[in-house]
C-alpha cells in the first residue's frame, strides 16, 4: 500500500523520535543467536524481506504467521501451527483447506501476540510470516531462535508472495500448474471481452464489517487490482502517492455519483448473493435507481482472496461469468 505522502509528512517527527529512542536502546547488547543449521545438511537459500535465509530443503514442520497461512494452505501446504484468521475469511476457503487450517495448532492472533512458547513446542523447522514490518521486528529474534524464518512485509505483491511462500515452503508442485491456468484465464478474458475492456468505465464498490453504517467505499484494492493490472480494465485508482481510494468511506448519498460509470462491480458470496456486509447498499433506493443497476450493468463478483492463485482463479472465473452477462453493447 502506498503511504508515501504521509510518510514524508511524518519524516521530521519520526527523525526526532528516532533520535530519542536510539539513545534509549543504545546500551542494550545483542546476544548472538546460535544458528544450528549445521545439523541439517540439506538446505536451500531463499530470499525474503529479512534477507537471504537458509531453509531446510524439505521442510516438514512449517509454522505460518499472518497472511502466509491461507496462501500456504492453498498451495497444498500443511502447516503445524498457524495464527488466527477471521471467521469471515475462513468461510470463503474450500472445505479441505478449512480442515487443514483447523488441524493446525492455533498460536493466537498474529504479530506480537503470537504464543512463542507454544510455537517453540511445535518444534517447527521453518517459519513463514507476512505481517507489518514494525510487528515483525518485535518478534524476529524469538522466531529466529526457534527455526529459520522467512518474512515478507505487507508491501509485497501477491504474486511475489505466492512465489516466495511456495519456494520457501517447498510447495512448488501445484504452483506451476496454477500459474499456467492463471495466464490462460487472463488471456482468455482479454480476448473474449477485448471490446468491453477497452471501452468501458468500470467502478468497483465494497463495504466491510468495519465500515460505518450508512457508508461504502470505492475499493481499489483486493481482487480488483488483478482486473486492473493483469486484465487492463479501467477502474478508478488513487493517484500515485495517495492513500488508496478504498480507505475513504463514502456516505450512501454518494451512491448517486456512481452513475457516471458504465459498469459497477460489487462483492458477492460464493452463491452469488451480495456479501453480508455489502447487502445494505444493494437494498438502498439510490442503488436501485442507478442506471447501471437498472440495465444489468452492475456485476456481482466473488473474491475469496487475493493472496494466492487458488482464490484468484476463482475470482477470474466469477468475473468471466459476470462479464458474459453484460448486455451486448452497440
Amino acid at each position: 500500500m502506498n503511504r508515501n505522502s504521509s510518510r514524508r509528512r511524518g519524516t521530521a517527527i519520526a527523525a526526532a523520535l528516532l533520535s530519542t529512542t536510539l539513545v534509549l536502546t543504545a546500551c542494550g547488547g545483542d546476544s548472538e543467536e546460535t544458528a544450528d543449521t549445521a545439523a541439517a545438511p540439506q538446505t536451500r537459500s531463499v530470499t525474503g524481506g529479512n534477507g537471504t535465509i537458509q531453509v531446510p530443503a524439505d521442510p516438514q514442520r512449517v509454522v505460518t504467521i499472518g497472511n502466509t497461512t491461507l496462501p500456504f494452505i492453498d498451495m497444498g501446504g500443511k502447516p503445524v501451527g498457524v495464527t488466527e484468521v477471521g471467521a469471515s475469511e475462513l468461510a470463503l476457503i474450500p472445505t479441505d483447506q478449512k480442515a487443514t487450517f483447523d488441524a493446525a495448532t492455533n498460536l493466537g492472533s498474529s504479530g506480537d501476540q503470537v504464543d512463542m512458547e507454544k510455537l517453540a513446542g511445535l518444534k517447527p523447522d521453518l517459519i513463514l510470516a507476512q505481517l507489518p514490518a514494525s510487528e515483525f521486528e518485535g518478534i524476529k529474534k524469538q522466531l529466529e531462535a526457534v527455526a529459520p524464518t522467512v518474512f515478507w512485509g505487507l508491501d509485497v505483491e501477491w504474486k511475489a508472495l505466492a512465489d516466495g511462500v511456495s519456494q520457501a515452503g517447498d510447495v512448488t508442485d501445484g504452483l506451476g500448474e496454477q500459474k499456467a491456468k492463471f495466464q490462460e484465464k487472463i488471456a482468455k478474458i482479454q480476448q473474449t471481452y477485448s471490446a468491453i475492456i477497452g471501452g468501458t468505465k468500470f467502478v468497483n464498490v465494497d463495504r466491510w464489517e468495519s465500515s460505518d453504517p450508512g457508508t461504502f467505499s470505492v475499493a481499489d484494492f483486493g481482487c480488483v487490482e488483478i482486473a486492473q493490472d493483469d486484465l487492463g480494465m479501467n477502474f478508478p485508482k488513487a493517484a500515485a502517492g495517495e492513500d488508496p481510494l478504498g480507505w475513504t468511506s463514502l456516505p450512501y448519498e454518494q451512491i448517486a455519483g456512481l452513475s457516471k460509470y458504465d459498469v459497477i462491480t460489487y462483492p458477492v458470496d460464493a452463491a452469488g448473493q451480495p456479501k453480508v456486509s455489502f447487502a445494505p447498499v444493494v437494498a438502498t433506493n439510490t442503488w436501485k435507481a442507478l442506471p447501471a443497476v437498472n440495465s444489468g450493468r452492475a456485476l456481482g463478483v466473488f473474491c475469496p482472496g487475493n493472496n494466492s492463485y487458488g482464490p484468484v482463479l476463482q475470482y477470474l472465473d466469477s468475473l468471466d461469468t459476470a462479464l458474459a452477462t453484460l448486455p451486448a453493447k452497440q
Binding site: S6, I13, L17, T20, T21, L24, G138
Partner: peptide, 20 residues
C-alpha cells in the same frame, strides 16, 4: 497510533511516538 498508521514506523519509532 500516529506512528503506526501515518508514519508506518518501526518499533523504536512507536516507542518514541508513545512517549512523546
Amino acid at each position: 497510533l500516529i506512528v503506526i498508521l501515518v508514519v508506518n514506523g518501526t518499533y523504536l519509532q512507536l516507542v518514541g511516538g508513545a512517549l512523546l
